[in-house]
Amino acid sequence: MGYQAHFRVWRGDGEGGDLRDFTVEVNEGEVVLDVIHRLQATQASDLAVRWNCKAGKCGSCSAEINGRPRLLCMTRMSVFSESETVTVTPMRTFPVIRDLVTDVSFNYTKAREIPSFKPPADLAPGEYRMQQVDVERSQEFRKCIECFLCQDTCHVVRDHEENKESFAGPRFLMRIAELEMHPLDDADRVREAQSEHGLGFCNITKCCTEVCPEHIKITDNALIPMKERVADRRYDPLVWLGNKIGRRKA
C-alpha cells in the first residue's frame, strides 16, 4: 500500500536556507504532517514544524504546499499523484524562524489593536438574551482557528512589508465585523475599521476566503458588509445609532 514519495522541504533560518530533497515512505490515509513527522523521526530529527491537534482545530500547522497556503494536518497525501514532488515551504508573509516555523507575532500585535468586546452596561452576567439568527453571523467568524493563512495569502501584505503597519489583515478586519455584528456589543467600530485598521486596502479579491480551512466567507460575509457600512456612514451618521437601538430584546 505504501510508496516512496519525493518531498522538497525548505530548511534554514532567518539568515537564509534552501529546499532539501527527501525520499520518504507514505502510507494509506496519511496527511502531509504525517510525512513531515516521519522525516523528523527517521531523517531530520531537528526539522522544525509547528502542530498541535492534528485535526484542523488549532491552526498551528500552517505552511505552503506546492505554493498554496494550507494546513499540513488537513492536506491528504491522496490529493497528490505518487510521482508528484511535494514541496513544503514556510508561510511567505511572515519572517522565518527555522524551517517551517515562522514568526507570526504580527498577528498578535494586530489582535491587540482591535478594541475588545464592549459588554452592555445595562445587563448583568446571566441576563444576556440573543436569538440564534442574530448570533449566527458572528458565530461564523468565531469559527476562525487563527491559522493566519488568510493573512499569509492577502496580497496587501504578501510581499508588501510596508503595508503591515496600517493593515490589520482579513482575519482581524473580520474580527471587527464580528464585534460589529454582535447583538450586544456596545461600541461603534465602523469608522475605525477604515481609518485605523486599513479596511480600505482590501479590494475584495477573495484570496483570503479561498484559503480559509474553516470555509469562512471572509470577503462576502465580513469584509464587504463592513465596506457597505463604511459607505453608509459617509452618508448618514445616524445609521449606526439606529442599528444599535434596534437591537432585539428577547
Partner: peptide, 16 residues
Amino acid sequence: WELETYGALFDRTADG
C-alpha cells in the same frame, strides 16, 4: 455566564 461578558457566543434556546 461570565464568558458571555467576555464576548462568547453560545448557541441559543428559542427564548434567547
